[in-house]
Design a protein around this nucleic acid. Sequence first.
DNA 1: CAATCTTTGTGCACGCGTTCACAAAGGCAT
DNA 2: ATGCCTTTGTGAACGCGTGCACAAAGATTG
Lengths: 256, 256
Amino acid sequence: MATGRNHRPATRSRGIPEATVARLPLYLRALTALSERSVPTVSSEELASAAGVNSAKLRKDFSYLGSYGTRGVGYDVEYLVYQISRELGLTQDWPVVIVGIGNLGAALANYGGFASRGFRVAALIDADPALAGRQVAGIGVRHVDELESIIETNGVSIGVITTPGGAAQQVCDRLVAAGVTSILNFAPTVLTVPDGVDVRKVDLSIELQILAFHEQRKAAESLTQDVPEPLAPGAAAPAPGRDQGPDGDIPAVMPA
Amino acid sequence: MATGRNHRPATRSRGIPEATVARLPLYLRALTALSERSVPTVSSEELASAAGVNSAKLRKDFSYLGSYGTRGVGYDVEYLVYQISRELGLTQDWPVVIVGIGNLGAALANYGGFASRGFRVAALIDADPALAGRQVAGIGVRHVDELESIIETNGVSIGVITTPGGAAQQVCDRLVAAGVTSILNFAPTVLTVPDGVDVRKVDLSIELQILAFHEQRKAAESLTQDVPEPLAPGAAAPAPGRDQGPDGDIPAVMPA
DNA sequence: CAATCTTTGTGCACGCGTTCACAAAGGCAT
DNA sequence: ATGCCTTTGTGAACGCGTGCACAAAGATTG
């Protein structure tokens, strides 16, 4: 600290760390819940607990936005809701398109959380002509041929891809060429995009595999901890002592 | 992820970094594609490119698994597929339950990527009695009353929550109490779980908000293109006339 | 066998993110 | 005012992840 610095309105323009940005929606959700209960102020401790993070982290996160708290009191809920909303760009309307109206695309179209924060589904797009014209979640499905004109007409800058993996890159290219600069990708594909385009991917399969890894680790751990004898007598152990251990360096299937 | 606490002080023997674990499924997918094209070996450069990562990072990731490459040649595709699969625990069967058969839950049940890697949907569970008995994706929906018995009977350790936010914590508690130790949460809620239980969350709304933040920043940037990056050290740059800009220091709604 | 070429595996440095711990700042009571 | 209490805001330390750059290791060729 050591003074020396006058009250600066946190000239951070570029300063907000990515990790902080990723947590702002979390804070916003907790704050919105407080707001609906008409809670006027909240301490960093309380809010952090509601958001499931460390209170020091929360305070540091907020410090990147500016000094919006009052020492000895806490943060004004309404004010903070507004500031975070503004910071995230939620005070404006964001038209989005969903490309690929299969099970997942349809589910997203029906998802209420979409519209709740300024995101408006401008169009549903699919390559199947049989779908064109049908209504999903009260929105008409348009054929992919119209993709470019839809994006231009509605000023869409955010696209959601829920196509099969094989079509994702092609759709992505068309979206980008038409002016989309942010893409949320649900297809199991690594998208290649030019500089200046943001891609976030949501991959159910990957999430499950990560869970499986930890699950396996936990299972192996409980075996080597609870049971002093690594080899469980009897029981269903097809290959006891093989690569069950954490150090399975035995190349079981080394190819030629 | 929202894992409680890092209860692994040293993690000596099998200390694969979390960031590496999160990338293994990505490598596995790229390798599987190569395998299907009968490509025998692949260099770190090629594979990294296919997975969308840096080649040095990929090599370091693989080094945590062991020395599975051959210098001057590359990595044996089939061998690596096996090693990563084993490391991720995909060589065994993982029964999962999906709780909350709304639009999203049904979409997940239909999602092919689920079954493709050892994940088997053991049951679909919903609180709505009208759904019980109906078939979704060829799987019968069971009532939530049966949750505990289903988990125990099938040895389920991974649960997927696709309920509305309000029910998520309650469902989570029941899953954990019944023996589930890994949870994939699609509900817009912060789940509280005891130590030893892993939670990963997938939140569409949060992803969109993060994109919106960057989108807004890009938009503001293109407007004030004359000012590059660094802020003036001594003299504050003349406040740009942006009224809506992201740097709005104007406290528009400062409460009393 | 030796020389050369290719590609892995990794030591090292750097930057980001997290956490601790505490002084500064505001409220409140006396 | 003054002193006490509460809570913010942040300096500093630490640990993790990333990427560079290069030596080691194996293949390949003559």
